[in-house]
Structure formats: C-alpha cells, structure tokens
Design a protein around this nucleic acid. Structure first.
Length: 260
DNA sequence: ATGCCCACGACACGTGGA
C-alpha cells in the first residue's frame, strides 16, 4: 500500500496538477492539506473518477484537509479532540481496511505559528499538545496508524538550507521542535528519516526569491508511523520533481510504501 | 530591508502563508 501526504495550496487551482500526480504515483491513500474550500466545493467527482473514495473536512478560504483512498474509508471523524472552540479545519481521521487488517489514517495541517510573539504561536503549541494526546490514545490500541501531513516543523538543522535564517521562526523554534520530539518519543517512527540519512532533502520551497531555483527549501511534511505501521515500512521518498512543473504547489508530495 | 510570490475574497488591496 502506497500512502502519501500533499499540501496542494488550493484544490481549485491545483486539481489538474493533483490528478496528474495521482495517475502517475498510483498512491492508494492520500492526505491533502490546504484545500481552501468548503465541503460542497471540493471536486469529489473528478477524484472519484480516478478510483478514489473521498472524505473532506473543508473550510472557506483557509485550511481544509481531505483523505483520498482506493480502499473504503470508515469511521471518518473531523477535528482534533480537546478544544471545542477550535473552528479551524486542520484534522481528519479515518479507518482504512486493507489486507485483512486496518490502517488508521490521521491527516493533519499543523498551525504555522508565526509571528511567535502572538497567540498564533500559543495556538500552535496547544494544537500540538492535543495531537500528542490523540497519539497517546491511539497507541493504546496497539494497531497500525499513521499521522501524516504538513507539520509546519523543521525537525533538524539538516532539514533547512539556512538554519540561522530560520532560528526564530515558529517552524524551527525550540518550543515547536520539542513538541515534535515529544510526539516522536512516544514511539512513533518518522518515515523519511527511517529510510534516508542524507541532509538537505526538502518538501517545501517558497514561491519568492527564487527559492526553488536555488534549492532554498525546508522539510516540513512528515509521515509518523505507529510501531505496528513502522514494522510494515518498506520505502519512503519525496516527489521533488512536482515542484518544477507548471503551476505547482509550494509543497511536494511525500509518500511511503507499507507492506499490507 | 520583514520585501520578492501566490491564493483568497469579490475588485481593490488586505490577510495569510512559511
């Protein structure tokens, strides 16, 4: 089973780009972020025509996440538990039956958190606390699950072209990275780093200042696997070439192959 | 230099992204 995460930065603008990649990658389960539309505006029909089931947690203008799956999508839930006042569409979860067992899929778009001296940063950290709490609950089930998406976290200095330029950014601040490590240290496996040790492999390049041409990127899209899912991990990689196509997202897809 | 680019809403430029 091939699973993937892709921040499309508007499903409306990116539909053709996404469909091309779905056909080429033959991904079985895909988590999308920043669809930037309400549920009814999501082009479900065009994606279903490619053989996918669709679950959407949309929002007008901002955020919005979805799961696409060639397998059935069961027990879909929207929103990250723990704060009923949070109205931002950043989390969706579903159970995917596959190979006589199930994979639970958690798709997430973690808050950016900038500027760091505002409530946006505290919201990011509070959101991460709730994600950690959800991971703890799911780990008790001792089943395969994956939490994948745009984490808006640069885990390590090797994951950014210029660490000093990002030192005080919410994506690289010690408080943000500490929460990410707290999540990993529950016993989750970061799929890309489990498969690759090379530095300077990126998943995002800014539209500005020739960042793509200069390879000034950051690695912020991640797949975190439960122990039962990590046992099945066979490969993981970044579809970097997508960034060089016409009308690209500023993010590219990251995928993992799990043996199911 | 806090900008450069891109998407959104509903038409002009402000907001948000990372």
């Amino acid at each position: 089973m091939k699973i993937a995460t892709f921040n499309v930065n508007s499903i409306k603008v990116r539909l053709g780009h996404l469909k091309d990649w779905l056909k080429e990658s033959e991904a079985d389960v895909v988590c999308l972020q920043e669809i930037k539309c309400v549920d009814d505006a999501f082009p479900a029909g065009e994606i279903e025509d490619l053989g996918y089931n669709v679950a959407v947690h949309g929002q007008k203008t901002y955020n919005g996440v979805a799961i696409l799956s060639k397998y059935p999508l069961e027990d879909v839930t929207c929103g990250l538990p723990g704060n009923d006042g949070d109205e931002q569409a950043r989390y969706i979860e579903a159970v995917v039956p596959a190979g006589g067992t199930v994979l639970r899929v958690c798709g997430l778009y973690l808050p950016n958190g900038n500027p760091v001296d505002t409530e946006k940063f505290s919201y990011k950290l509070e959101w991460m606390d709730r994600l950690i709490a959800r991971a703890k609950e799911l780990l008790l089930l001792e089943e395969p699950f994956v939490m994948m998406g745009d984490y808006n976290i640069i885990p390590h200095e090797d994951d950014v072209h210029d660490p000093d330029a990002w030192r005080n950014d919410a994506l690289f601040r010690p408080e943000s990275r500490a929460k990410f490590y707290e999540l990993l240290n529950l016993g989750l496996t970061e799929a890309f780093r489990a498969c690759h040790s090379e530095p300077h492999k990126y998943t995002f390049w800014d539209y500005q200042a020739g960042a793509w041409q200069k390879d000034n990127g950051i690695r912020i899209d991640h797949l975190l696997l439960s122990p039962q899912a990590a046992d099945r991990l066979r490969a993981c990689d970044i579809d970097k070439a997508m960034r060089g196509r016409e009308k690209p997202s500023d993010h590219v897809p990251v995928w993992a192959e799990l043996e199911f």
